[in-house]
Design a protein around this nucleic acid. Sequence first.
DNA 1: CGCATTCACTTAACATGTTAAGTATCTCTG
DNA 2: CAGAGATACTTAACATGTTAAGTGAATGCG
Lengths: 151, 151
Amino acid sequence: MRDFSRSLPMSLLRAREAVMRQFRPKLREHGLTEQQWRILRALAAIDAAEVTELARTAFLLGPSLSRILRDLEARNLIERKTAKSDQRRSMVSISKEGVKLMAAVAPSSEAIYAEITRRFGARKLAELQEMLGELELCLASTEASDVADEM
Amino acid sequence: MRDFSRSLPMSLLRAREAVMRQFRPKLREHGLTEQQWRILRALAAIDAAEVTELARTAFLLGPSLSRILRDLEARNLIERKTAKSDQRRSMVSISKEGVKLMAAVAPSSEAIYAEITRRFGARKLAELQEMLGELELCLASTEASDVADEM
DNA sequence: CGCATTCACTTAACATGTTAAGTATCTCTG
DNA sequence: CAGAGATACTTAACATGTTAAGTGAATGCG
């Protein structure tokens, strides 16, 4: 059987871990996990969003997001209000404190990202991300065809 | 700020998720999680290993591995015995049942991997893994230099 | 309208990720 | 050979991943 340490999932896992290892300590200094940081960043970019939309953007599953939003709200980093037109929906937005926290973390985060880019090479990094995007795309279509098969 | 949906960590996360989404259903049919499967594969390749060695091979942290081994042992998929020379160490190996289970899952797993390779292209896949390895390598050296800085 | 279905989210349950602390064993030094 | 420190795990505590089930609100259809 193929040496599993060289399998694609393992390669991706190790590469991602190598990258995140650079960020985690700094985020931790500010009491943020990787996922919480993702949510704040997503919210900072779009002002307000429904939970489902946020889940898609931050690439989190609903249940994870539900928990994290509860915690972030308790820490006053985000705000929620239920939409008037549809009581099921709740609009989430980043709070002033959230913005302040982001401002505190963003420089370090950018610096780390710049260092990674410098080490790996900007051109190579772009190539890598291009390939990752293609991989994602060519596998995403699997599900569509599977669904088609079942119809 | 850089659009975070196009950040390297997100690219890696989405790509990996796209890949694992192909495997998870089949593993689930056999009552295995991704990590349990990694451990069984690692063990099948090396006969017996110490826990620490296994953690490195399967890219799991000690505590996760500890729990998973407890569960796999309860299911009689692995066996352990403490080393005679060093009572702290325990040697882990795959059981007959474990081998049987692997034999049942491996064909599907290989088929899925082959399909991914076909879709993405064998050459491109090799290139991608090469780049991922380089990324891992150039970031791993960070820690060494950090340690050096502190000395 | 009535009511089954869908929808947007939340809760629940179990497994893993992550860091810190605990335990037993070993090793090395004085 | 005693006792400090290192080693190999394990346990604990908290956060997230993953799937299934639950809840309340909207929708569509007879």
